[in-house]
Design a binder for these strands. Structure first.
Length: 422
RNA sequence: GGAAAGAUGGCUGAGCGGUCGAAAGCGGCGGUCUUGAAAACCGUUGUAGUGAAAGCUACCUGGGGUUCGAAUCCCUAUCUUUCCGCCA
């Protein structure tokens, strides 16, 4: 959520931000509506002042035994006028809200304009693995090594699902364990969250109302407004909704493991077979609540942590600065860590490191009190650490051997209890 | 699944149609006392909008209604607690 007063003051700045995001909106019209609201509110306030005064007078007349009929008629008329203004106000407000609450975040200055094509590769870690044998894709490897049961997953849950099986389940769990231990070491607080959230969480995180169609709703008589979380960020960022945190308690550093549920409508591409994209996948997510001046420190910390995980796993990846049009709605800056999938010869996202600045803080009404007593909205940042369900195929493909086995990354051996998958 | 009771300021909790933005206690802040602290005593203390300020307005979970007037009455949503049933 943005500050309408600031939009009024610096309209060009906001227009420029939205242009970079490829987001079209008529700010001029929005500002006009806002002015109208202010005007109506003032009018309403004047009427209410009269009403309040009248009620007091009425009480006095009644108690002194005087005639109240004239005043009563006046008051009824006043009440009618007030109701009219209130109704008008509600109408304008509704139109205004529709546009205002849908506004995306601003973007940081160095954000490249445009869509995906304008993403910038900042660096590459490791070398593209090359194989002196015919490399397999992760689907083949999963089947041969009996790590994933695609057929029965489809049978019980439909397309876009898979079942981690035997050693596969243990590998996924090992990656999760590795992530958890890394975050604990860095002093992040572990949360195990509910997976069904209230609508307002989606609003607070900035995903709703605009992108409510991307999530699964519990569309029943029971919990009609609740949905399956698409990422733990949606929950973590709402944890302190309507709270005022103390400055000395910041930063707050959380992480959570959850499955993530997404409809992924229309994104079923043939090259994303296997476990590249599903309706449910596992992810460990980090979130920090910070004071504005701590934004950069937190950003570097989260980025560093996410990168370190992939590095320790010894995987080839690249770091990408996203263009504005590729940002999630609520984010002002996002860099992606993209893992290399040899069979696709493509890099796919395993972590998004983002700052929302105070966009989510405003939407969730999460503030912090400074040492001088004044209050301000918190900044929130988030980063995956990491999407294990995508790390899984990357490990299989990047670590595969000529004989069809897969070497287990060193850091996972202690969790998995073996150093080779065969 | 059934039944009942609730939701009031940072917390506990009174108020149940007008003089209520709201008692009291705790906590917080300031002071007296003290070498310092504790205790005791005195004072002070909700949030937001608007305004230069005085002030004005809104807020007693959210929404709607009744009324000249609602924390208080009615409807509704949400949440909480307790009891019974079922249950990992």
């Amino acid at each position: 959520m943005l500050d309408i007063k600031d939009i009024k003051k610096r309209k060009e700045y906001y227009e420029n931000c939205f242009k970079k995001r490829q987001y079209e909106v008529d700010l001029e019209a929005l500002i006009k509506q806002y002015d109208k609201i202010v005007e109506l509110k003032k009018l309403q306030e004047e009427l209410l002042t009269q009403k309040n005064k009248g009620a007091k007078d009425f009480d006095l007349l009644k108690r002194t035994g005087k005639d109240t009929t004239t005043l009563q008629t006046e008051m009824k008329e006043l009440a009618k006028q007030t109701a009219q203004i209130t109704e008008k106000l509600a109408k304008v407000q509704e139109e205004y809200d529709k546009v205002f609450f849908a506004l995306p975040n601003i973007v940081v200055d160095d954000t490249p304009a445009g869509n995906k094509e304008n993403n910038v590769v900042l660096k590459t870690f490791g070398k593209k693995p090359s194989f002196d044998f015919k490399a397999k894709n992760h689907i083949q490897l999963c089947k041969q090594l009996n790590l994933i049961d695609y057929d029965r997953a489809t049978k019980i849950a439909g397309e876009g699902n898979w079942i981690y099986t035997g050693l596969g389940a243990r590998l996924e769990w090992a990656i999760l364990n590795f992530c958890i231990e890394e975050h604990l070491k860095d002093g992040f607080e572990f949360k195990l969250l509910p997976h069904i959230l209230k609508y307002e969480c989606g609003f607070g995180a900035g995903q709703f109302p605009k992108f409510a169609n991307e999530d699964f709703f519990i569309d029943k008589n029971f919990l009609p407004n609740n949905f399956l979380l698409p990422t733990a960020e949606t929950a973590l960022v709402n944890l302190h909704k309507n709270e005022v945190l103390k400055e000395e308690d910041l930063p707050k550093k959380y992480f959570a493991y959850t499955p993530c549920f997404r409809i992924e409508a229309g994104s079923n591409r043939p090259d994303e077979k296997g476990m590249i994209r599903g309706h449910q996948f596992n992810k460990v997510e980090m979130v920090e609540y910070v004071a504005p001046e701590d934004n950069e420190r937190a950003w570097n910390e989260l980025l560093g942590k996410a990168e370190r995980i992939v590095q320790k796993l010894g995987l080839h990846y690249r770091l990408v600065q996203l263009a504005g049009g590729d940002y999630a709605h609520g984010m002002a800056k996002t860099w992606d860590i993209e893992i290399y999938i040899p069979s696709m010869d493509r890099y796919t996202e395993v972590s998004s490191v983002s700052t929302a600045l105070n966009y989510q803080g405003r939407r969730t009404n999460t503030k912090y009190q400074k040492k001088d007593g004044t209050k301000d909205y918190v900044y929130t940042l988030n980063a995956s650490g990491i999407a294990t369900s995508r790390i899984f195929p990357a490990i299989l493909e990047q670590y595969q051997n000529a004989d069809g086995t897969v070497t287990v990354p060193q850091v996972l051996v202690k969790y998995l209890g073996c150093d080779i998958l065969k």
